[in-house]
Amino acid sequence: MSTFAVEAHDIVRSFKDGEVQALKGVSLMVPRGEVFGLLGPNGSGKTTMVRILSTILAPNGGYATVDGFDVVKQPDAVRRRIGLAGQYATVDENLTGFENLRMIGSLNHLKKSYVISRANELLAQFGLSDAANRTTKGYSGGMRRRLDLAAALVAHPPILFLDEPTTGLDPQSRQDLWGIIENLVEGGTTVLLTTQYLEEADRLAKQLVVLNKGSIIAQGTSAELKAQLGTTVLALTFASTDDAARGLELVRELSDKPANVEGSLIELTLDNGPRAAADALRRLDGGGITVTGLNLREPSLDDVFLNLTGHKAEDEVPADVRPSRKAGK
């Protein structure tokens, strides 16, 4: 048995007769029993990768195995070993929470008696017992996500694909879901998680791959990526773009990473935020330039991109995510 839960080698996938290149040769090795993070902005190819690994979509090139089984040649073996949950929370609106889980259980070919006890167990575990017999149409976003995740877990899959599980959730629901994922991994489950949030990847994932426009632009542990990045972002606002340009000359050398300039706003990635901020203010004051706003924050995914590519993560969305079919988001 391979030491890796998921292996992907040079996966290529395009859409619209090759017009849109969603994946341009992506390779991944996901170790067992931990969370592996697939980080990237919208349209970077994350969802396409998950769809290929979960046998929904065939790659145009390359090959992948899940738990040792080829996703193209042995799709049913793969399907018996995976659970899939995602940002679209595909639960059946006309069924109750319990009925949703029962349906997924029987489609996973589990014993009837087992499905019933497992469904109740999961509903209790995810705080959905009270809502078990209500149709999911009335569920909140957080409840849907939890039910969606519960559905992915009915058959105890050793490998779980979570496609942006917390996108659009409020902070509390996000925390809840993170706790659930951590418990699963403690129990031995392997999780491949896609996310747009550095914070999420940082909290959950041991190893990370950063995707941009269908290619891997960075990989390593979250600590390694952060070390590359610096720890703080200093944002300075000026009264005019002129001031910003002159200010940039004065503070540029405080950071060895490229600065991000947008109109009268400058952003610098720094290793020692507070000290560098004080330093920046002294320099600007000395140069006679007034700062109208100052903000110190944790680096975001945008900062990772700025750092890795020299430009901001673009939000262009190729026909990567189940395009025309989705109603709404």
Binding site: R51, S54, T55, I56, D76, R79, R80, I82, L84, Y88, T90, D92, E93, I104, L107, N108, H109, A151, R322, R325, K326, A327
Partner: peptide, 19 residues
């Protein structure tokens, strides 16, 4: 069903394709 993404979930399950 396609629109709601349910078919997507069905396709990742070990169920009969024609079902």
């Amino acid at each position: 069903d396609l629109q709601r993404g349910l078919i997507e979930r069905f396709r990742a399950l070990p169920m009969a394709r024609m079902a």
